[in-house]
Design a protein around this nucleic acid. Structure first.
Length: 360
DNA sequence: GAACCGTGGAC
DNA sequence: TGTCCAAGGTT
């Protein structure tokens, strides 16, 4: 590498870290080098805004102060504490990893990027983040913020959705990272992307790099980074059979490979189109006999619930049961009282419906 | 490589 | 209102 490049890269990291010291937010996971807490914060913050993840981080640290505490917990309680954050496999993987760290590693997290990368739920970004923040390893932590900063300042036009992008952007960051303080550099890149080099309408007049930024000089802020479109969400039509008997409600854990795995909802009939009458649900899984177990209340509204890849159109068919008689609940379905239901992890949609309908 | 996996906020 | 996005990872 020519000497001029070395000089230029050092200048970049120095200016960036200068900016960081002046502008960074005071966030709780930056007050520690405990790999457990850093890991916890990184898992929570995956695809999640700081304002949304913050209360969850504080609750998790409060309830599970150490990895041993988390390992001892039931997965269901971990999912319940995670309720509302989404991408629930993060919580299940986190719990699995806590048990592995305690059971196989004597309660100590791997102290290197390559070791951390082996953990379930820890990919290249998260491994680099923990390795640098907790152990000062000089590996670049390249997240969405870093893609944006690098693409704009250096004019990198590779589609960040393309498979080659990760290698290219990681190499670019690796060239910039200072050996003497990789942790602050990584924090600074991420923080700079989050609060100065924002996705939409960044205020470039305040930016310390506005005299050398490719995007600013060429008016390309809104076009960089290049990101190809995502596929449109598919429509799904869900019909829940909500059996209520003497203040108890029948619920079931979602165990299939599908959305909300590990969470609880009701017996469900999925249809290809929106069901308008009880007859539309016949022959769709053998649950229709449940609708005869009591007095049926036909839903008067459809909930539309958006997921990242699905648009759910959901109807709740309530069945007021006096006596199940010869009707039996399907496998895995049980009646729960209010306190039990409160303790179960549930999708936000289900939690909202229950609160509206029963326990408001 | 592309699809999948949640939720809430900003525009 | 619909779209995009947010400290990604797994299959």
């Amino acid at each position: 590498m020519p000497a001029s490049s070395v000089h230029k890269d050092a200048t970049f990291s120095q200016k960036l870290i200068q900016w960081y010291h002046r502008h960074h937010r005071d966030l709780p996971w930056r007050q520690t080098t405990d790999p457990y807490k850093i890991w916890l914060s990184e898992i929570i913050l995956q695809q999640t805004r700081v304002v949304q993840g913050m209360p969850y981080y504080l609750r998790f640290v409060e309830k599970y102060p150490t990895v041993q505490d988390l390992a001892r917990a039931d997965e269901q309680d971990v999912l319940r504490l995670w309720q509302g954050l989404g991408y629930y496999s993060r919580a299940r993987n986190m719990h699995y990893t806590a048990r592995q760290v305690v059971g196989e590693f004597g309660g100590k997290f791997p102290d290197s990027y390559s070791g951390l990368l082996k953990l379930k739920g820890v990919g290249e970004y998260t491994a680099a983040a923990i390795a640098s923040f907790a152990f000062n390893e000089a590996v670049p932590a390249v997240d969405g913020n870093v893609y944006r900063v690098l693409a704009r300042i250096f004019g990198i036009k590779t589609d960040i959705m393309h498979s080659s992008a990760k290698r290219e952007f990681t190499a670019a960051a690796q060239r910039l990272i200072p050996a003497d303080d990789p942790a602050t550099f990584n924090q600074a890149m991420i923080e700079f992307g989050a609060i100065q080099c924002q996705p939409v309408a960044p205020d470039c007049l305040l930016c310390p790099f506005n005299e050398s930024c490719y995007a600013f000089e060429n008016g390309m802020q809104s076009f960089l980074p290049v990101k190809s479109k995502k596929a449109k969400a598919r429509n799904r039509y869900l019909n829940y059979l909500v059996l209520e008997k003497g203040g108890l409600i029948a619920m079931k854990e979602r165990i299939k490979k599908d959305v909300w795995k590990g969470l609880y909802d009701f017996p469900i009939i999925e249809t290809l189109q929106e069901a308008q009458a009880p007859e539309d649900l016949a022959g769709e899984g053998g649950l229709e006999s449940l609708m005869m177990a009591g007095r049926l209340i036909v839903p008067d509204k459809t909930y539309v619930h958006l997921l990242s890849h699905q648009k759910l159109h959901v109807k709740f068919w309530q069945i007021k049961v006096e006596d199940m008689g010869t009707n039996v609940l399907p496998d895995g379905v049980s009646f729960y009282n209010e306190d039990q239901i409160d303790a179960l992890p549930k999708p936000i949609l289900i939690d909202t419906f229950i609160k509206e309908q029963f326990f408001s």
